[in-house]
Amino acid sequence: MMQTCQQMMKTLFPKKQQAFPGKPKSVSRIRFGRVLVWSLLLSAAFMPASAGYAGQKQPQKKPARSQLVVAGSVSCKTTFAAPLARQFAKKYDMKVKVYSGGSETGIFAVYARAADLAISSRPLTEDERKAGLQDTVIAYDAIAVIVHENNPVQNLTLKQLNKIFRHKIKSWKKLGWKDAPISVILPDTSSGLRKVFLQTIMRGKKIKVKIKEGLSTYGAIALLQKDSTGIAICSLSQAHYAHIKPIAVNGVTPNFDTLAEGSYPLQAPICLVTYGRPNLETRRFVAWITRGPAEKLLAKSFLVPREQGAYFSE
């Protein structure tokens, strides 16, 4: 069995693996897939076998429950992914494991067959779709621009954000506050929100400002809480934490209503990502979410649900 595991690992993660279109560059993302695959394979390899003497009657065992592995967005895990997984597991009497690590990590885990499904806060690229991945948009999130609670700035335009990241605006004085350098904070590159945010404000321009990186949006929030001259981003559902505050963008405050009506300019789609023809459990999970049960929980997380027909059939 161990030989079989090793052969499967070589298949999923060859030493000279062909470049996956859009594959995360960080080695930690690849390690996540390896660790997850090993944990799944080894759990099966060392499952205790039935023991007993010949002719001895063995006790009846319940059939093993099906299992679904979900990976991806850190901001989505606690707000709705984990609660939804618990509801789904109870309804279908199966195990559902939810791992975070970021949208990029989740997408690669699905591509490497280390996860059945990823929750991503960015859409797939065309290259990723050509590689066999599929995405289903289930909701939209507002990307909140946040500053320290002691910062009096209430609004920034997309143009001003662009200039901050191009290092054209270096001090808060030009934005109506004190003469202090702007400390730019972002979640690490595994974040889907980061990618959508930068695509929206930069429009192909090169980033020239020095960026402090936090591990996920929660890490970025933690850095901002200790930096009164900082600016960062997070999901709208995370913008309530102590010592930070969301500000308006282009004069529009981020909230459920402005997100729903489309007036808030920084929006990210929340997608379910699968590979090829998903298994029955994955198809059920996607169909179950897109048919309505998740709507209340999504709205509670300040996400605007997207009404659509079932993408997969059971």
Score class of each variant (00 low, 15 high):
A242I: 06
A260G: 10
A248P: 02
I207N: 11
S191E: 02
I244A: 03
L193E: 01
V252K: 11
H240G: 13
A220N: 12
G262S: 01
T253P: 04
L266S: 00
P254H: 09
L215D: 01
I221P: 00
A248E: 12
A248Y: 08
L198S: 09
L198C: 13
V209S: 08
L259D: 01
G214L: 09
K245I: 12
I221V: 08
E213P: 04
K245W: 09
M202V: 04
T229F: 11
C234Y: 00
K210L: 11
F256W: 07
K195C: 05
Y264N: 02
K208N: 12
E261N: 15
Y218K: 07
L236E: 00
G230F: 06
K226E: 15
Q238G: 02
I221S: 00
V252H: 10
T253H: 06
V209N: 03
L259E: 05
I207A: 08
T253W: 09
C234M: 03
T258H: 08
L223Q: 10
M202I: 07
V249Y: 04
K210H: 15
S263Q: 04
G204K: 05
K205T: 12
P246M: 01
G192D: 08
L236I: 06
F197S: 01
H240Q: 10
L193N: 00
L198D: 05
I247W: 05
V252Q: 10
K226N: 14
G230N: 12
A248W: 07
A239G: 13
T253V: 08
K208F: 08
Y264P: 02
H240F: 10
V209I: 15
L224K: 03
S216C: 12
S237Y: 08
P254V: 13
G204T: 12
A248C: 14
A248D: 05
S191M: 04
R203K: 15
K210C: 07
L224R: 04
K195M: 09
P265Y: 13
C234K: 00
I207H: 06
N255Q: 04
S191K: 01
I247H: 09
Q199H: 08
K195N: 06
A260E: 14
I207R: 10
G230Y: 11
I211V: 14
K210M: 10
I221D: 00
I244S: 04
K212E: 12
S235H: 15
P246I: 00
G214V: 05
Q238K: 02
A232R: 00
I221A: 02
Y241W: 09
K206D: 10
G204H: 07
R203V: 14
K208A: 10
P254I: 13
A242K: 15
T217Q: 02
L224I: 10
H240P: 06
Q199T: 08
